[in-house]
Each structure stands twice: as structure tokens, then as C-alpha cells.
Design a binder for these strands. Sequence first.
DNA 1: TTGTACGCGTTATCAT
DNA 2: ATGATAACGCGTACAA
Lengths: 344, 344
Amino acid sequence: MKKAPTIRDVAAAAGVSVSVVSRVLNPDSGPVAPAKRQEVVRVIDELGYRPRAAARELSAGHALTIGLVVTDLSNPFFARLADRIVWEARSHGVQVVLMTTQEDPHLEAESLDTLLDRSVSGVIATPTGGNIEKWARLQDLGVNVVFVDRTIEELGDADVVSIENFDSAQRSTEYLIGLGHTRIALVTGPLSTSTGRARISGYRAAHESASLPVDPLLIRDVPFRGDAGGDAVGSLLAMPQPPTALIVANTAQVQSSVRRLVQKGVRIPEDLSVIVFDDNPWTELMSPPLSVIRQPLDMLAVHAIELVLGRMQGRLPEGPRLIEVKADFLPRNSCAPLAQTAIR
Amino acid sequence: MKKAPTIRDVAAAAGVSVSVVSRVLNPDSGPVAPAKRQEVVRVIDELGYRPRAAARELSAGHALTIGLVVTDLSNPFFARLADRIVWEARSHGVQVVLMTTQEDPHLEAESLDTLLDRSVSGVIATPTGGNIEKWARLQDLGVNVVFVDRTIEELGDADVVSIENFDSAQRSTEYLIGLGHTRIALVTGPLSTSTGRARISGYRAAHESASLPVDPLLIRDVPFRGDAGGDAVGSLLAMPQPPTALIVANTAQVQSSVRRLVQKGVRIPEDLSVIVFDDNPWTELMSPPLSVIRQPLDMLAVHAIELVLGRMQGRLPEGPRLIEVKADFLPRNSCAPLAQTAIR
DNA sequence: TTGTACGCGTTATCAT
DNA sequence: ATGATAACGCGTACAA
């Protein structure tokens, strides 16, 4: 186990001073005689020298690194988001340190502290909803914060990239209303999250436009983690007057919800029409293929990374930016007119 | 945008020297008078001081960080592996920087260089198969390397955690043979990977034990990325004498393979019996539920992290360790006896 | 164009 | 028990 060469080793071997080597490394920092430059490059190559990131960071005061804070990589939504972000960051020479929160504000707080220690220059995150002061402090210390998917309204200064939550929920609800359904259940995230709130609003708006009453018992704002989605579905099915249609408005709840439906032997769409908010190609392979709101997470990722990197490089105007990308509704075969629904 | 306090600020505010503060931070590095300790702690808390990671790393020569190098986070296998590893690492106070290779040795090489720059003390990776000297160099520089899922036989010194590839392939093949099938197709990873080779061997062994000939045309070792799995399936179905059973022996190919089957209208198991190597809960929700070799990736993750951390802390005996965890075969309803198969 | 010297924040060594 | 000081490796004014 030998130890890696330093800039000094290179300088010595090339017969120049460290500053020359440094200037070769950072081209715009000053002039170098072509002959010496070539020699230095040769030696660097020969020794396999690479600048230590820690030293650079210490000197620069900040790292060419961003933090990615998501709740849970076993959710395909976040997995694919992470994939895109890591990929995009790499192509810009930026590394990604990954942290998961399991939707726990306490773990989130820990993550933020750690990222601060690392002097990351940016963070892309799906916030749990808590830790408001901590987020503010992070920004105060010069870290560029970009929220993706969700947001924290109280935090004025953060960029946000999300899908059109209100709109998506409204459209899918309208679609079901258009099929004649009047008892439409909604399983969505907790009220403590911006997405949970926005999607419920969209759902309500669709009812209002159609002058349809909203049965509050049909709205289930449940935790993301665990089997909450499945349990909500179970309880909905057990109602004296069960719904004839169901919208699962959050990727985190889709899996457990669908599993419960399958377990209970519910026929789709004969017994129940179903729409899910999805990022999982498998929905297409089920029988019947599920109608989905397709979350354009490539767009989310691209915008998010564009924002952090943009901020890091100082371009981009001052104020916070809010980007909403459209989510397409893909009707497939999991919805039927009320008239053809068995239990009603 | 204020700037974070340093150890000097703390020392000044507490009326002590930096050494005292440092000793308070690192308890085992020397004695501190209880009174002073308390005061220092108070000031640290008041100022919200946190030690800069870069400075520590520079001083220590290595970072409390590990690199996680996988091919692709959109594969649920790697996503969930990453999830577990990040989680487990966090609980030990080490961060994870994430890199993806897209199965490209060139990108892998870049990643390794970057990780070297960061002075990571360990790497958990699913190697592409190339970059042998680079991996060796990494180890030479004191980085603990743990391969997971796949391995590089030429590299003597690396720990390896994998499933029993030979055995899993053998058992699933035997199961199908037991159902009377004689033309069993195998879609698996490229021969350049250890898993590809081992699974083909298991498949062959099962045939041998049953004194069944192996039709080489039924073995498709295809690339992981893209639609290679689906294309292989398409071409298998188009054979003059198509297979009556199919094993998709790699998670990366499952999705495109199954999609192709669905597209072609192949009935499972009436037309074709199917077994897939899986980590995706959705296989259970399809109709029919697919029989799978369930990859125990929790075990993979736990062992991998246990190995890196163990090495980092200097415990663990000298030589490289090879851990093989068992993968269970879960028969569900996607396989039928040959006698009940339509096309034969 | 090149080299010297100092700062970045922390830990470790060695006096006191 | 405490404090001064030298690394750690790199960037960068500033001097030559």
C-alpha cells in the first residue's frame, strides 16, 4: 500500500515549483511556458497524480458536490430521479452524496447537518415538511437549495420543481366523473406535504365544477411509508357504500394499494375503476394495464440539476424559481363507465 | 449569507485554546477539565459549530466516506441495494457518494478516479468486468473494495458478496425439467460477467444431470442495457422450434423480456412457462403471478456494508472473503407441465 | 513567466 | 491539564 503523490512530488519530479503545476491544473489561473507545461503534464501522467479533493475544498471553502436528499430509494420514483440526477451531475464534474430520510424529519435534520459539514454547494431534496429553520440556515450559509416534487411554502428562498399537482388530480377526477362515477376515493399523501394538499384541492375542484358533493370519508390522506395505502384501500372497500372508483395519487402508495386490491380479489375495472400516479413501467404489464398519471421525472431531474448547477455557477437571476411541469394522463384499461360497474 | 464558525471561533468564545476544543470534539485524544469541557460544549452549541469534513479529511488522509458504484439506479435491484447500503452506512456515520456506470467500463474508470480523489476509504461496487489494473491500483492505495452481485476473478484481493448463481440457475432449470420441459430458453447477462457465466453453467449442469442435450441456440447471453432482453425473447419465439419454457436470469432483462411476451400475446403458462430472477414486488401482482428466484438483496447489502466497515476499522482477518447467500426459488403460477403446454 | 509564502480548518506532537 | 505549533495538500496573492 503505497501512498499517492502530491503536487509537491510532481513539482520536484518536473523540476518546477508547485505553482506551475497548479497553473497547469487550473488553466485559467495563469500563464505557463509551453515547454514546461508539456513536461509537467508528462510527469503528472507518469506518476498518476490526482489532486486531493479535500485539499481543494478546504482551500476553496466549498465542495464540488451536491447532496441528494430523498425519502427512500425503494420507491421507483426516487430511484429513477436519483439515477438521472447522478448522471447529469457527473457530466458536469459534480459528485452526489446520497441521503435518505424515510420521511422522518429527525433523520432529515441529521442529513442536513452532515451536508453542511461537507460544505456541499447545493442540495436537491424532497423535504419531509419539517426542519424549516434548518433549511433556512442552510440557505443562509450559501447552500443552494432546490426542492423537487414537494415544497415547503414557508421557505421563501428555495427553487422548486414539481408537477402540476392540482391539475393532475383535477383531470383524473374529471375523467372518472365523466364516466359517471360519483363515489370516487382518493388515497394521497399526508396534509403536511404540499403534494398531499394540492392533490386534494384538485380533487375537490373537479367535484365542484360538476356540482358533485364530496364525501370526506372518501379522502384518505395517509403516511407514505409502510402499508398505509393498502390499509386505506382495505377500509374503503369495507365502507357500507364503497367507492366505485379509486385514485391513488402518490407513487409511494401505489404498490401497497394495488396489492391489496389483488389480494381482495377486486376486479378492475368491473368492480372498481382505478387510476394511479405512476413512474413504474410495470403498471403497463398488469392485466388490465392501469390508467396512470405519468410523472415526467426526467423533466423534474433535468430542471432540478439545471437549477442547482446554475446557482452554483452564479448565472441565473436572483429570485427563487418555481417550475411546474405537466404530467400526462394516460388512459388505459383500468377504468369503466359507472353503468358497467358491478357493485354500485 | 454569513459564514460558519471555525474551531478558532469556538476557542476564542470559550476562552480556551483550539487544542482544548479539539480534545472535546475527539474524546479519546486527551484529557480536559470537566469545567472547561462543559463550557466548550456550551459555546459549541450556542454558535452551532460543526467541524468541517474537508479539514478532517485533509488531516487524516482519508474520508469517512464510501463510494457506491452501480450500473443503473433504474434497475430496482440496484435501487433497493443502494437504499439499504445508504441506510446502513448512515447508522455508522459514514456517507455514501453514488456513481453509476451504465455498464460502461469507461465511465467506471472515471468513477474510480473520482473516488480516489475523494480519498474514500471503501468502495462497494458491481464491476463491469473491465478496468482490472484500476481496481488493483485502488486497493494498492488502501481503499477497501467489496464487489457485490458480480465479481472479477482476476482480482485476488477483493471481498465478494453474491448469491449462489450456479445453484439458482440449476434449481430453476431442474424445476422446469421436472415439469417435462426439454426446450428451455435462458436469457442471461454477457459472458464477460461472472454472473452470466455461472448461471449458464448451472443451466448446463441441470441438463447434464437429466441427460438432456443443450441446444446452444436457446442460450442468449445478451447485454444488460437497452432492449436486449426483449429482443432475445422475440428471436426465441421466432425459432422454428421455439422453447416451451423460459428463464430470465438477470433482473436487468426481466422488464423488457416480460414486456415483449405481453406484446406478443404469449399466454403464461399456457404457451410458455416462465421463471425470472427478481427483486421487483410487481411480479407478484401480474396475472399470473410469476415464479421467481428471489434475490435476497437485504443480505447482500448487509454483508457488503459489514465487510467495508469491518475493513475500515481494521477488524476482520487478512485474506479476501467470499460470501455467497442463498436465493430462494418461489414457485407461483407461471409454470405448467409440458403436457399442458399448447405449442410444443 | 516563475517561485515563495501564506491561508484554509483540523488533528497530533510536544512543551509547559 | 493546557497551549503553541507543525503538518495535511492545494490555491493564490505577491514578489522576483
